[in-house]
Simulated assay, not measured.
Amino acid sequence: MTNIIYIKNMVCPRCVNSVAFILDKLKISYGIIKLGEVYLEEELDEYTKKLLKEELRNSGFSLINDRKSQLIEQMKTLVVDKIHHSNEVLDIKWPEFISEKLHLDYKYLSSLFSAVESITFEQYIINQKIERIKELIIYNELNLSEIAFQMNYSSVAYLSNQFKKITGMTPSEFKKSTNKNRRSLDEI
């Protein structure tokens, strides 16, 4: 029987490596580690679970115990994975995608997210997209038209308006600024 544990703040491949290191250090047998999830090969006893919580906390992660928090973390992980760790054009219908992946009604998930996180799920997605756009601007590999296409904006003007609304500056002002004000994905 596979036992799944959910871990908050696993937002990148380095996080997966860090969690694997912690599990190896504690001699906890696992199968697969994905963003936010670890498939354990056996159930943890209370002492080991306490040690794991402590090690995770020391590395900026936390074990998630309740079902609602697990759902929210899964929603966040799906968004981060699609926006930050995929090279595909972001042509996605979030309500259908999230419902399909979590096998629950989108209205329920969206309401739950808003109640717990104090922002809407849609705003969370926008915030993640803006952070990705900042990253793409800094890399300077794509022009704004290509970024708009990659992030599935209908136009450069729409991307620029949303970017300014969130950051207080246009993409070109951001590119010229010396203070790039990027946020860690787990802080969004």
Rank of each mutant, 00 (worst) to 15 (best):
M1C: 00
K8V: 02
M10C: 03
V11G: 02
C12Q: 10
V16D: 01
N17Q: 15
F21L: 11
K25M: 12
I28L: 01
I28E: 04
G31W: 01
I33L: 01
L35G: 04
G36L: 07
G36Y: 07
G36Q: 06
E37A: 08
E41W: 03
E46I: 07
E46H: 07
T48E: 10
N58W: 08
F61Q: 00
I64R: 05
I64P: 09
S69N: 13
Q74Y: 09
M75T: 06
K76V: 02
L78K: 05
L78Y: 07
V79Q: 08
V80Y: 04
D81Q: 15
N87D: 13
E88I: 10
L90W: 10
D91N: 15
D91E: 15
I92S: 04
I92P: 06
K93C: 13
K93P: 00
I98C: 08
K101N: 11
L102E: 01
L102C: 03
L104N: 11
L104S: 13
D105C: 09
F113H: 06
I119K: 12
I125E: 00
I126M: 14
I130S: 07
E131N: 08
R132K: 15
L136K: 13
I137K: 07
I137M: 10
I138D: 09
L144R: 10
E146G: 06
A148C: 05
Q150K: 12
Q150R: 14
M151G: 03
S154C: 09
V156D: 03
Y158M: 14
Y158P: 01
L159K: 03
N161E: 14
K164Q: 15
T167P: 00
G168C: 09
P171A: 09
S172T: 13
F174T: 05
K175C: 01
K175Y: 14
S177D: 09
K180W: 03
L185A: 05
D186S: 15
E187R: 11
E187A: 13
